[in-house]
Design a protein around this nucleic acid. Structure first.
Lengths: 200, 200
DNA sequence: CATTATAGTGAACGACCGGTCACATGTCAA
DNA sequence: TTGACATGTGACCGGTCGTTCACTATAATG
């Protein structure tokens, strides 16, 4: 199938690009790993750069699906513990889903070379996370679970350290267990600091 | 001078590597920008990879000088405002010193390809900052400027968001002004949350 | 002053890169 | 059965890569 091959090429390209970067990847290497001659690739993509653009298109679409619409947001937790649990589920998912890990690596590596990668990197590593947790914290304040404060500032203060540890996992996978434990400890610390004694 | 040329080569290599990555940089490009024939480079370095290693050596040494010994630590602030000022001075320095910016970019780009870059990246982006602020916060607790708490957790909660915004500046320099303002706002927020009402 | 080491040049190398082409298949509608 | 189209192959192209080499200019040394 044409669609099949095309997707296999994109998948293999993501793998290679995220490991060795765009410039460090050659077409022979990843078509060979598919058992395909490199010339066959050119039936599906006009050039190496077009693969790159298609990958970015895919990543943009994927991001839009998962984080684009407000109705996709996770529900506001009912207890502080539920926030921890929700956070840990998200972290577990984002750390162990190989495609997402490779996407983060790719954006990390190429953010200074490509404008679209740059914008996506800022979304993935900063604004997306803050934008996701701002309404959550706002809702938790309404429920009396968190002290009244600027919810966006709290979202930033909450997600940035977690994001830093996720990226540590990307960089040093052998530290994943320790990093996850640290994220949970931080999440509980956060609740201890910002939480109200008793729900109102 | 031999030493001169060697340093010029390293400086130019840092510039190019941090922009286009190791694989994306070719020797002709950066020797030409020095007004040097590429063959002349081989009088000073045996190979492209040796330039890379020399750069990492330099970065390791530089990092060790500035962050290695405990006596190089900034003094414990006497007031909450002094913490903000000290933070902003550090941020201003680290954002506007071109060599440091390029070093961060280089480590960001190459952290998945090279083991030494990986270790340095973790130091630069995570453990170094936490290790620097842990004793500071510990001292501020002693002075009654901060609530008693785990100083390392506080250092992590303080430095990770700031680090995220510094990296935003690396990625999108046109957002520098806004990011710096945001760092200051976060620093003041942090003090409001963790600070004591009155120094003890 | 002759010698020697140092720093630089430009041409050339083999390997590898992204990309093209003529050609071989397989599939399927007419 | 035949023709058309989609898909894949391997040889090949020009260009660029990192690296080498014979050679030159310079400056210090005996």
């Amino acid at each position: 199938m044409a669609k099949d091959t095309r997707e296999k090429i994109l998948s293999s390209a993501l793998e290679q690009f995220s490991q060795n970067g765009y410039a460090g990847t050659n077409i022979r290497a990843f078509t060979a790993s598919l058992g395909l001659a490199k010339s066959a690739m050119y039936r599906h993509f006009a050039s190496k750069e077009e693969i790159w653009n298609a990958l970015l298109d895919e990543m943009t679409a994927y991001y839009g699906e998962r984080f684009g619409s407000p109705d996709r947001l996770p529900p506001v937790p009912d207890t502080p513990e539920a926030l921890v649990q929700m956070t840990m589920r998200m972290v577990h998912f984002t750390i162990h889903d190989e495609k997402i890990v490779m996407t983060r690596k790719l954006l990390t590596i190429e953010q200074f070379r490509d404008g679209r990668a740059r914008d996506l990197a800022t979304k993935h590593f900063l604004t997306g996370l803050t934008g996701m947790f701002t309404p959550i914290f706002s809702g938790m304040m309404d429920k009396g679970l968190l002290r009244r404060d600027d919810p966006e500032m709290l979202a930033f203060a909450y997600t940035a350290p977690i994001s830093a540890l996720i990226r540590l996992c990307d960089r040093e996978p052998e530290k994943t267990e320790a990093a996850v434990a640290r994220i949970e400890a931080f999440s509980r610390h956060f609740i201890r600091i910002y939480g109200t004694e008793e729900p109102a």
